Computed example of a mutant assay.
Amino acid sequence: MVVSARVPPCLSSLPFRGSRAVTDGHLTWTMLRGPTWVRLLPDVYVHRDAHRVDDHRMWCEAVALRLPPGAVLAGRSAAWLFGAYVLTRDTPVTVLLPSPARVRPHPRLLVTRSPLPGPDRTRFAGLPVTTPLRTAFDLGRHGPRVEALVAVDALLRRRMVRLPALRDYAAERLGWPGAPLLREVLALAEPLSESPMETRLRLLLLDAGLGPLTAQHEVRAGGRFVARVDLAWPALRIAVEYDGDHHRERAQFRRDVARLNALRAAGWVVLRFTADDVLRRPEATVALVRQALAERRPTATPH
């Protein structure tokens, strides 16, 4: 009768180096070739019960096991580890390599090269990453423009980075690639933006020439708090809100109705938009907001 090797807890939940597991006597190469283990990268395996094909944390753990000295996780991967959710489902792991380090290409790996001084490196959640400041700097200088702003807003929202510190950091690196884009992103950045889609909606309106506007404005009537709105033109009492999927829940819907009625009673016009409005019908969205602003703006009295 064949007796299976005892599998330590660390091998049942996290990626590991196969050669190390074999050297330590936990597994054999024959076992690793069996159905219990999934090969992620050369010499990196994970237990089949812990394998999730689009689990970014799993891939970060796996890639970290293969990083050459001085290399770190960076870009969107680092931002995601810091709690800024700026990934799509199948986003590859971003690695920053200082020259002359090398890493084997892989479809789940995005390799970037750049100077990486010691102060720009740290460890977070047990993994080597660029610091939050360096992460925001890198993401803010690589397009597309809207994605750069979304990433910077997300890190600012998590309070992993402060906008003045990021501006100072960027000012010391004016010659780096992407510096002009970063300057534009920093001029548009909004730490109060509460979601990537809210950032996209705000940028859509600003690009249409409908600014300036105020993020997360508190509406008060008679000294009493009424509501906090995503985007506002306070002088005109016009609010624009992004409604995510959670607004479809019954309890949230009831709260939304009561809140909307309170804002209307306070004299506010509230326009609500979804992801489809922002991504697929941007012209119509801008036209609705432009019309509301025109209706509320006082017309000049002819002499």
Results as ranks from 00 to 15, higher is better:
residue 163 L to K: 05
residue 85 Y to T: 10
residue 138 D to V: 07
residue 163 L to F: 00
residue 84 A to V: 04
residue 295 E to C: 10
residue 247 H to E: 12
residue 185 V to D: 02
residue 240 V to D: 02
residue 32 L to G: 08
residue 89 R to N: 00
residue 169 Y to K: 08
residue 245 D to P: 02
residue 114 S to T: 12
residue 243 D to E: 15
residue 8 P to E: 10
residue 32 L to S: 12
residue 148 A to W: 09
residue 291 Q to K: 14
residue 56 H to Y: 11
residue 149 L to Y: 03
residue 83 G to R: 13
residue 268 W to G: 04
residue 248 R to V: 09
residue 239 A to Y: 05
residue 212 P to W: 13
residue 262 A to R: 14
residue 185 V to P: 02
residue 100 P to Q: 06
residue 297 R to I: 06
residue 138 D to N: 06
residue 80 W to M: 01
residue 103 V to N: 06
residue 165 A to Y: 00
residue 45 Y to C: 04
residue 91 T to Q: 14
residue 40 L to W: 01
residue 175 G to S: 12
residue 130 T to G: 03
residue 32 L to I: 07
residue 224 R to P: 00
residue 24 D to Q: 11
residue 287 A to C: 05
residue 288 L to Y: 01
residue 134 R to D: 02
residue 237 R to Q: 14
residue 138 D to A: 06
residue 78 A to C: 01
residue 221 A to E: 15
residue 100 P to V: 04
residue 206 L to S: 08
residue 274 T to C: 08
residue 152 V to G: 01
residue 102 R to K: 09
residue 31 M to H: 14
residue 82 F to L: 15
residue 6 R to P: 01
residue 83 G to Q: 14
residue 301 T to I: 13
residue 168 D to Y: 04
residue 51 H to Y: 15
residue 177 P to W: 05
residue 171 A to N: 11
residue 106 H to M: 14
residue 255 R to F: 10
residue 293 L to S: 05
residue 118 G to H: 04
residue 187 A to N: 08
residue 95 V to M: 03
residue 170 A to P: 02
residue 28 T to W: 09
residue 195 S to R: 06
residue 93 V to P: 12
residue 175 G to Y: 07
residue 22 V to Y: 07
residue 99 S to H: 13
residue 250 R to T: 02
residue 138 D to H: 10
residue 261 N to Y: 02
residue 206 L to I: 11
residue 75 G to S: 11
residue 2 V to A: 07
